[in-house]
Every structure is written in structure tokens, then in C-alpha cells.
Design a protein around this nucleic acid. Structure first.
Lengths: 193, 193
DNA sequence: CCTACCGATCGGTAGG
DNA sequence: CCTACCGATCGGTAGG
């Protein structure tokens, strides 16, 4: 990875750490690897951060906050359930597309958090999922959606969205706006009666 | 994990390794952890296996073979593209459901393979994906499916399927047959015109 | 399957 | 930001 000149050293550390955790996994990335990618010694990292886990923690909880923040905006609107779900999906994909590497770490590396933080993380996640479940339930109650299994539906939806960082590439043909809208459309069509 | 008495020691080693790689990740699972779960010393593992990576390799490539084998059966049938895709999805989910832990390792831990094996693995995977892409293309050409972006469609599909091991639980309410058919139905409905 | 190890590498600290 | 380390742990081997 190249080093961006306009970032503080601490920001550079986070940027490189996120990219490396995504590519190799948290456990398989050593602090020496990380230091090396920045052209410094491993010991020097500790004048910018407290520990390796601090890196993971910040990446995971910052993205969690973005997901929740985006959803709150959508929930307040007075619109049909299917439309709410569509906007919820778009909000979710936008958070992912804005920072693919952090999202990938969020989805795949959170289990490396120490028990106390892992606990908090899982609570945030279950809360977020439940709010999507609520939208789908509402859609079924209002006769907009077919009588699908709620858990299956919401998990299918999140699966489609959360695997995005592993295949979506900013430089490629499909642009982010199109991915968001097509994905939302395809998933909602799958739920409709 | 409990130890099943009717399995050979080698099979027990693989069973425990698969479960632990799934839960903690390959890099975060030490051979001492693995030995401990079997009630033996780490050094004793090496009378059953050659190396840690051999475990990962066998898990990943065995599942790859199952995926490909299942698809070949479907491809030979003379049926419409949408039906072929439906059976392809069902075959895929059945491989996953038959061994959730191995499938999870296949999807999330393959990147820990050493370069030479990683290369072969990625070739198998791209080949498999391309065969699904072909079915979707055929469906569009035959006017069965809407003019979706092929890459987006196939990635959405695999995402939905491949995240299954992380949320599907054999002991739970939804049975495997229902998951397979509902999932296939939802995804294909999302593609239709 | 065990004891007794091996060299390498890990995350991190002290002190400048 | 560096040099010089620390104790702990890693995957794995020798020899029984």
C-alpha cells in the first residue's frame, strides 16, 4: 500500500491496518507486518495506538455507529413498509460502499474482539437486525409481502448486502448508486406477493 | 466439544479442527487449542496429520469437489434456464447444509492457504461461479429473466447462499428442505421479469 | 500417544 | 521514531 501524504500518522496506521485485516484477517496480521507496510518499526506503532485490539475495536464500532445512524433516518419516515425497507437497504449499502475495507473487517473479524467488547458488539448487531425484521413483518401484515419466513428473509437480505465488500470494486463497471438500487429492487421483488 | 466414540482418531481431529476453524478462524486456532479439545498433547496430533495447513487444505478442497459434483448433475438436464438455476441453488444449499462447519471454513478461511494451493482454490471457485453466470445469461437470452447486471446477480445469489452457515442452525425451526426451496424461490423471483 | 525440546515469531515495554 | 529487549506462544521434530 502506498502512503497518503495528507493523513496524520495515526490515520495512516488505521488505514493500513484496516486494509491488512481485510486481506489477511486480524489474527494473521502481525504488528510487524503492519509497521513494515508503513516503513517503520513495530515498536513505533505504539506511540500512535495503545494495542492491536484497539485498532479492531475502533474499526468495528465506528461502522456499527454508521449503520445505526443511517437506519434511524429511515425509520422516522411515514412511508409504506416496502419503501422503508428499500431505503433501509440503500442506507446499508451506502455505508458499506463508502468504506469497503472497514465493512469487510466489521463483518468478518469482529469475533477476534475480546469477550467484553464482543458482547457489546453482538448486542448492537442483534438490535440492528431486529429493526429490519420489524419492517419485513410490517410488510407482511400490510399484505405487501408474501408470507415468508422472517428469519430466512432477513438473513438472506443481510447476506446479499454483507458479502458486497468481498466482490464489489470501486474501479469497476458497476457504480455504487446502481448497485444499491438494483440490489434493493431485486431483494424486495423477491419478497413481494 | 464432545468426542464421538465411533470415529477414528484422525476423523475426530478433522471434526474438531473444522469446528474450531469455523468458530475462531484458522489463524486464531493453535494446534495446542485443537489438541486440548481432544484431550491430548499438541505433539500427538502429528501422528495423525502432517501439518496444520493440511487440515485446512482437505476441508476446503473436499467441499469444492462436492459443489462441483452437484452442479454437474444439474447442468446435464434439458430444462429451462430458470429451472436449471433453481436446481443449482438447491444443490448448492444442500452441500452447505450437509456440513455447515466445513462450508463456513471453505467460505471464510481459504485465504489462509499457502500461495500455491490458494491459486488452485481460486481457479476452482471462479469456474464454479462462471457456470452459474452462464445459467443467468441463458435465462436473460430466453427472456425468462429481466436484464439484470450479471455480476451483481450472481454475487447477490452466492452471498445469500454462502452466509447460510453463519446463521442456519440444524436444531432450529426452519428445516433444511424449506430453507433450500424458499431461498431458491426468493432469489429466482428477484431475477424474473 | 508422551516428554522434552527447537527456532521463530508474537504483542508489547523501557528508555531514549 | 529507534534500539534493545521481554515473556509467551507458535508450528513442528526427535525419540521413545
Amino acid at each position: 500500500m502506498f502512503i497518503k501524504e495528507n493523513l496524520s500518522r495515526k490515520e495512516q496506521v488505521y488505514l493500513h491496518a484496516t486494509e491488512m485485516f481485510k486481506d489477511r484477517g486480524y489474527a494473521a496480521t502481525s504488528m510487524r507486518d503492519l509497521a513494515n507496510s508503513l516503513g517503520i518499526e513495530a515498536a513505533s506503532l505504539y506511540s500512535h495506538i495503545r494495542s492491536k485490539e484497539e485498532l479492531l475495536r475502533k474499526i468495528c464500532f465506528d461502522i456499527a455507529a454508521e449503520f445505526i445512524g443511517g437506519l434511524i433516518n429511515v425509520e422516522q419516515k411515514d412511508i409504506p413498509a416496502s419503501e422503508k425497507l428499500r431505503l433501509g437497504i440503500i442506507s446499508h449499502t451506502k455505508v458499506i460502499a463508502r468504506d469497503l475495507a472497514s465493512a469487510a473487517v466489521f463483518f468478518n473479524e469482529y469475533r477476534n474482539l475480546s469477550p467484553a467488547y464482543l458482547h457489546d458488539f453482538l448486542l448492537l448487531r442483534i438490535n440492528y437486525i431486529n429493526r429490519f425484521k420489524k419492517m419485513i413483518k410490517q410488510g407482511i401484515a400490510d399484505d405487501e409481502f408474501a408470507e415468508v419466513d422472517i428469519k430466512l428473509a432477513v438473513m438472506t437480505m443481510f447476506s446479499s448486502l454483507n458479502w458486497m465488500p468481498t466482490w464489489y470494486n470501486h474501479t469497476e463497471s458497476i457504480d455504487q448508486e446502481k448497485v444499491s438500487t438494483e440490489l434493493a429492487q431485486m431483494l424486495i421483488k423477491g419478497l413481494k406477493k
